[in-house]
């Protein structure tokens, strides 16, 4: 893999910002650099310069680039213990005070987390009354999420995770197998609103009881984590919840004091101040 210099990365981010209004300037450097390097290999560019040229010339190519540069590796029910806490503690707690529950998946990628949530809510008998919004920066990946078609080889892991969550059904009743793919039951996401939304440049658009933003902010540097957390904070009702990845932490963020830790092991926070 060829070495890429930080100045090249900056030039690339500047070009994209000017031309397409996506801002990658505050992405975590090492992993961003590695993904750029993979793109150079994949599309056989000799250097970052030629990648920049291609991006500025072709919007169609930029869309492809966008799909490659954002991280879209995920699984259903990642961290089963988190999903158990959500089902057994967090959601029941919200239902003490609310008839309905609203959830935002911020950075939903190919949708595995959304289907996990829908299955969880369905088994709790509250899927139909719940409002779910799922957003991602990448239009191509949002289409994938809507379709809910996944390679069948992924379902083994998803099934194992589901078993660890101790769901009430057979996991395979939630999808149909055809030609090596699992087609998720469409009725699960009937009421889910899938939208394109950019966490970095986008506006706050609504308020929710739960915001799911797990393993998304790890791709940002601390400056950007701060900014995005402010938006997430604004998007949560007072006494609503924020879930982040198990090895993420809010303690470095300016507005951390507006949250309390509800479950430290699973990284669930509660908003206590506006």
């Amino acid at each position: 893999m060829q070495e890429i210099h930080i100045v090249d990365i900056r030039k690339l981010a500047e070009t994209i910002k000017e031309k397409y209004n996506y801002d990658f300037t505050n992405y975590a450097m090492s992993s961003f650099k590695r993904r750029v390097s993979r793109i150079l290999e994949l599309y056989k560019f000799n250097n970052v310069e030629s990648l920049i040229k291609k991006i500025s010339e072709s919007e169609a190519y930029f869309q492809e680039f966008l799909s490659e540069i954002t991280v879209n590796v995920t699984e259903m029910f990642r961290d089963p213990s988190f999903w158990r806490v959500l089902r057994d503690k967090i959601i029941p707690n919200i239902l003490l005070n609310h008839q309905k529950i609203s959830i935002w998946h911020a950075g939903c990628s190919s949708g595995e987390e959304v289907y996990s949530m829908a299955i969880l809510l369905k088994e709790m008998g509250i899927l139909e009354s719940s409002k779910i919004v799922a957003t991602d920066i990448d239009p191509i990946i949002i289409e994938k999420a809507k379709k809910g078609v996944y390679p069948i080889k992924n379902m083994d892991l998803n099934d194992k995770n589901y078993l660890r969550v101790q769901g009430t059904e057979d996991f395979n009743k939630y999808y149909e197998e055809k030609n090596g793919y699992a087609y998720m039951d469409k009725s699960l996401v009937e009421n889910v609103s899938f939208r394109i939304h950019d966490l970095v440049n986008g506006m706050v658009f609504s308020k929710f009881d739960i915001v799911m933003c797990r393993n998304v902010m790890i791709y940002f540097n601390q400056t950007l984590q701060n900014d995005v957390l402010k938006k997430l904070h604004e998007s949560i009702f007072k006494y609503g919840y924020l879930a982040i990845g198990s090895k993420e932490s809010l303690i470095w963020c300016e507005i951390a004091n507006k949250f309390i830790v509800v479950n430290n092991e699973e990284k669930v926070y509660k908003k206590i101040k506006e």
């Binding site: 975590a28 450097m29 090492s30 992993s31 590695r34 991280v71 393993n215 790890i218 090895k247």
Partner: peptide, 16 residues
């Protein structure tokens, strides 16, 4: 998680 070391000697995790 993958574990990267950033230039400022901090950890950066990833699920790539």
């Amino acid at each position: 998680y993958h574990m990267y070391i950033e230039l400022g000697h901090t950890f950066a995790l990833s699920t790539e």
